[in-house]
């Protein structure tokens, strides 16, 4: 599997969440994702970018266009150096939130993509990687 193209973006503010949505949309269109899949990717990106702003104290997203023998995909890696998540399984559960949100961000984002990976530890930040294939 080869990374064909990549881009890194800072995520610090509510405005950056909008910019991440727009960037992911543009990449998904370029890769030829159909509209529903574009929307799922953009929505998942929006949830994860907001987590970084609300809980992670800011961070980055790396957007990568993937190419393997028979398919193309988009991979997004969200990373922050915030407080981290103590219990990842609980954090993935719908309705669980430590903030004022609905607690759908992580679990919801996972349902909207094909591959989902989260690495986090208290004091060590959080990295969430999602991939959707077309």
């Amino acid at each position: 599997m080869a990374v064909v193209k990549h881009e890194t973006r800072e995520i610090r503010s509510a405005e950056d969440i909008v910019l991440v949505r727009q960037a992911v949309r543009a990449w998904a269109i370029e890769l030829g994702f159909r509209l529903v899949d574009q929307t799922k990717l953009v929505t998942a990106a929006s949830e994860l970018a907001r987590n970084i702003v609300d809980y992670g104290g800011g961070g980055t997203v790396v957007i990568e266009a993937l190419n393997d023998a028979e398919r193309r995909g988009l991979r997004l890696r969200f990373e922050d150096h915030g407080p981290g998540i103590e219990d990842v399984d609980t954090a993935l559960r719908d309705g669980y939130t430590t903030g004022g949100g609905l607690g759908l961000g992580l679990g919801g984002a996972r349902r909207l993509v094909n591959e989902f990976e989260i690495v986090s530890a208290p004091g060590r930040g959080t990295r969430v990687t999602i991939t959707r294939w077309r």
Binding site: G108, R111, L112
Partner: peptide, 14 residues
């Protein structure tokens, strides 16, 4: 609401 948005919302759990 656009159809793609509706589909995504439901999968998101909302």
């Amino acid at each position: 609401m656009r159809p793609a948005v509706a589909i995504t919302l439901v999968e998101l759990g909302l």
